[in-house]
């Protein structure tokens, strides 16, 4: 009898410890791993850009691309840009990687393969974790129309301005990353940006979306865009 009681209580303690360890892993350890992975990606981008091996800049809006440079392709899992959103904090900056697989999302923000390239005509769509893996989009609901979303690919600064959001939708609503998303209020093709994350914070029943349009571009030689100056 005593042996049974002892074994059962030992099992309960073991399961409890396992659960606590798992919570520590999800809340803390994924963040530690993701932060170091993101910093590594950003360092790598800066190293690559300082060496001068950068992709050609996209044309500014309205500008006629006479030479029509073909955009260099993005490679799955490879970082190609850094995103800054002043509303999420002045030190908030995350790498943007190609593809939306789990492994990619664990290292930064993920660009939907098949959507437009950064700064080009179409919809540049990016997903990020709301919670766990460094909580990149934890304060997503704080985004408001007019907020700047700034990206750089090493040659050009792209400043997008949020027009609509956060808009709550269901996970199957793939229309939100269309070139001209129906719910966004945009009526004509343009250079747009879509950010997606999950909602509620720890759940997966819905998604939060914001839409932005390309407001201005400038070369990196011209310094940081106004949106990033304090």
């Amino acid at each position: 009898m005593r042996v049974i009681v002892r074994t059962v209580s030992e099992l309960c303690i073991t399961v409890g410890t396992l659960i606590v360890l798992f919570v520590v892993y999800v809340l803390f350890w994924t963040g530690v791993r993701a932060d170091s992975a993101m910093n590594e990606q950003i360092d790598q981008l800066h190293r690559q850009w300082s060496k001068g091996s950068v992709r050609p800049a996209a044309a500014a809006p309205g500008e006629q691309t006479v030479t029509a440079t073909r955009p260099s392709p993005y490679y799955y899992g490879r970082a190609f840009a850094i995103m800054y959103i002043p509303r999420l904090g002045f030190t908030w900056n995350k790498p943007v990687l190609e593809g939306t697989g789990r492994d990619v999302l664990a290292q930064g923000l993920a660009h939907y393969a098949g959507t437009a390239q950064l700064g080009r005509a179409g919809n540049f769509a990016v997903a990020g974790h709301r919670r766990t893996y460094g909580d990149p989009f934890k304060d997503f609901p704080a985004l408001r129309p007019g907020d700047a979303v700034v990206l750089t690919d090493g040659t050009t600064w792209f400043t997008y301005r949020i027009d609509k959001g956060p808009y709550k939708t269901v996970p199957t609503d793939v229309e939100v990353i269309d070139p001209v998303p129906r719910k966004s209020g945009y009526t004509r093709p343009g250079r747009y940006l879509t950010l997606t994350t999950c909602d509620p914070e720890w759940g997966h029943s819905h998604r939060l979306i914001v839409w932005a349009h390309l407001d201005s571009t400038q070369s990196v030689e011209a310094g940081e865009p106004e949106a990033l100056r304090r």
Binding site: L18, L21, F22, Y25, V26, W29, T30, T100, R102, L105, A110, Y112, A127, G128, H129, R130, R131, T132, F137, T169, P171, T172, D173, V174, V176, I177, T196, T197, C198, W202, G203, H204, R207, I209
Partner: peptide, 23 residues
């Protein structure tokens, strides 16, 4: 646990679904 078991179990949790097309 941290190296093998939890990385396997974590995707079964709902925090990972942040995209609109992976359903």
């Amino acid at each position: 646990l941290f190296q093998y078991v939890f990385p396997w179990a974590e995707p079964l949790m709902p925090f990972n679904d942040v995209t609109v097309d992976n359903q």
